[in-house]
Every structure is written in C-alpha cells, then in structure tokens.
Nucleic acid binder design. Structure first.
Lengths: 212, 212
DNA sequence: TAGATTGTTAATCGATTAACAATC
DNA sequence: TAGATTGTTAATCGATTAACAATC
C-alpha cells in the first residue's frame, strides 16, 4: 500500500509543472535539483523529497531530464487525460472561466454552461449556448461529467452540489463563498476570491511591522 | 517587538471571519471555541491558539462575543478601512472582478480598469469606462492606489508590475500564471486558476487509492 | 460559589532541511 | 575513473494538539 502524500506536497506539484513547462519552452534538456531550487526559490532537498514521493525520476551525476519529468508530472497530476467540465452559473465569473482557452491546452474541456436567468439562457458564450439550469440533471445523466465548476451564489451552490453528487459528479471546482459539505469520496477544490483578497489586505496592512 | 505570525495562521483568518459573519447573521451572540471548532471542522485548540496570536478576545467561562470578535477580526485583516483597487486587463476575468459587487461590501473599492485593446477601450464595465493602458502611469500618479489586480497575460504582467512598483504600488492581486519577482516590501497574492484546477485533477485522479 | 471555558505551556506530530552513501 | 548529483536516512525545525491552571 502506497503511503499517503501530504497536501503540502500536492500543493507544490502544479508549480513544479509550470516551471518544467517553461524550461521545456526554453529548450533546456536537463536540470539538477540545485539549479531548479535556485530558479524556484525553494531548497534542492525539498524538490528531491517531493519528487521521490512518486518515484525516482532523476539520475545520479546527471540530474533530471526536463522532458521526461514534465511528462511524468502530467501523469501524476492526472492531466495526461482529458477532463470534461461543466460550468454552473453564467455570470461574469462563469463566462470568464468558459472563455479561458488555456484550460483546454491542459486537457480541461468545457462542454456546457448553465444558468437560471431566462434573460441570458440561449446566449452564446465561446462556442457554447447557455443552457437552462432545469436541463442540468438531464445533461449530467446523458453526458460524462468529470468536474462541475460552481460559479453561483452560495445559497444555490449547496443545493446544486447535492443534486450533482446524487447524479454521480465526483469533483467540484467551487467559486462560491461557502464550504460545500459533501461525501468524503467527492473532491472539492475551493477558489475563494474574497478570502484571497483578505489575505492580501492582511499582508499589506501588517507588512510594516516586518520591515521597520 | 511582536512575534511573527506564521502564514499557516494567516491563511485561516479569512475563514474564521466568514464563519463569524454567518453566525452574526444568524443572530448568535456568543460562541465557545468548542462550538466553533465543531462547525468549522478544526480543533478548538487551534482556534484559541490562532486568535491568541492577536490578543485575548475571549472570556473564561463565557467564550467569545461574536460581534466583538468579528469586528476585531476585521481590524486584524485590515478591512476596517477601504482599499482602492485598479484592475489591469479588461478581458473576461478582469471584467468579472470589476463586476463582483461583494468586494465593495468588504471595503475593496474598484476605481479603474485598464486595457490595451483599442476595440474595448472606452466601453463601460459596471459604472466604469475602460481606460487605455497608456493612461495607467498618469492615473497612478494622480490617484491613490492600494492594490493592483493583474488580469493580463504573463508576458505583460511582468512589465506592468515593474512599472507599477516604480510608481509606488505596494500590493498586487496576481491572476497571471507567473511568479512576479518584486522587491520584498511589495506584497503579492497569487490566484493561479490553472494550478487550482491541476490540484483538483490530482485529487480526483488519485482519490481511489485512498478509498479502496 | 461552582461550572465553564479561556489563555498558555508542554507534548506530539509532521514537514523541512541537512547530510551522505549510492551510483551514474 | 573522478565528479556530480541523486535518493534516502537522520536531524532540525515548526505547527498542531493536549492538558491544565487561571479566571470569569
């Protein structure tokens, strides 16, 4: 049985992936943990420890092959396969997500977007037509949905999330300012923008203490 | 001299604030660390430790006064004063941020939005007209800007951030997929949506291991 | 006063860093 | 082979939890 990977490690993985992607674009073939640590501002020890949770990707005396490590990392992250996403809520944020074409490059395919406002149902967003939220259940039953992005007010998202779980959806990208309380086999990733902004405010307000 | 507050603690503060706000709305007057811990799914010990970094807000035998703690928390977070924000980039994401009226409730006032695309400069977003990015420096010199939100491609954000720093901007809300490398007295809060999505992908792909 | 619950110290647990033998 | 750098164990550091005296 595999030992559990700590969430501290998991949080760092996408950043490794991003740096490896940049190195690849620059045509860098190999990199040592020491060089990468300098670039990323972390310790070489941490990089080696983190990677070795998933296997030995390097070679003594050589370092890591960038292309190989990049590909392995994409497998670890599960982005070597496509993910089908639907968006619930076609307000500004929902539309922004829908239009963000970079996700598709990473295999995140946005297939449908829903809203309960009759004024916008039927409108085009990217290459999709906004569907009515009352078609949501039907859609989920007839199409494979890996991830549901919730870009709706918190009162609605509790109900919608429950419904989607009962229809078999196993992963939520939650932009609502609420902690979804879902069964433990359901995965939730929160993007709480207002909390992010408060952290910024805290750091801005209190930094003087550190620098005086 | 005050002891440094760990970033683990700081990350939790906005969530406390959110729960306290909800309690306040429900009309709850007092709460013990034990009750709150149950609601939030953390230990009571952690709550007391976290709060006591900033002072003794409770009372033995009674618990915490919700209204008082909520207000104190807003001071700690620095949201008892308004913050003036500008947004650079009026694409979907920039417009979504601009239109998100909830921020104003917390004292985050969005004053201006800029873009370098002549097709959209002059258009209305909320109650603002999109300004040309070549007016940005002028604007910052003549108006007080606390926070700049960067909703532009990564190649642009490096340059723009440097410029804004030289004009005195001290805080960035960075939506670009890049690590801004700014002087250490400048505060950066990153919102890396694609990394968030990769973490979701990781957890979705690997959860079976945990639940089998 | 007695009961409840904080504030805070001490104990535990986990994550990060350092060190170095293995090895390419 | 000699030099470099990994993979991994051990040491340190920090964060979380437990415990309890202080006190409302």
């Amino acid at each position: 049985m595999k030992k559990e990977i700590s969430s501290a490690v998991i949080k760092r993985l996408p950043r490794y992936y991003r740096y490896l992607g940049e190195l690849l674009e620059e045509g860098v073939e190999r990199i040592s943990s020491g060089e990468l640590s300098e670039k990323m501002g972390v310790t070489a020890s941490q990089i080696r420890q983190d990677l070795n949770n998933f296997g030995g990707f390097g070679q003594q005396g050589y370092g890591y092959n960038v292309n190989y490590l990049y590909k392995e990392m994409s497998k670890i992250l599960g982005i070597d396969n496509n993910h089908n996403i639907i968006i619930v809520g076609a307000g500004n944020l929902g539309q922004a997500i829908a239009n963000y074409s970079n996700f598709a490059k990473r295999g995140f395919i946005i297939n449908a977007i829903f809203d309960n406002n009759p004024d916008i149902v039927g409108k085009e967003v990217g290459d999709m037509k906004i569907m009515d939220t009352n078609e949501l259940a039907d859609y989920v039953m007839n199409n494979h949905v890996d991830i549901a992005a919730l870009a709706i007010p918190k009162v609605e998202s509790t109900v919608i999330a429950q419904e989607l779980v009962s229809l078999g959806v196993k992963a939520f990208w939650n932009f609502s300012h609420i902690d979804l309380n879902l069964p433990e086999d359901v995965v939730v990733e929160n993007v709480h923008l207002s909390e992010s902004l408060m952290r910024l405010s805290y750091n801005l307000t209190n930094k003087e203490k550190t620098f005086l």
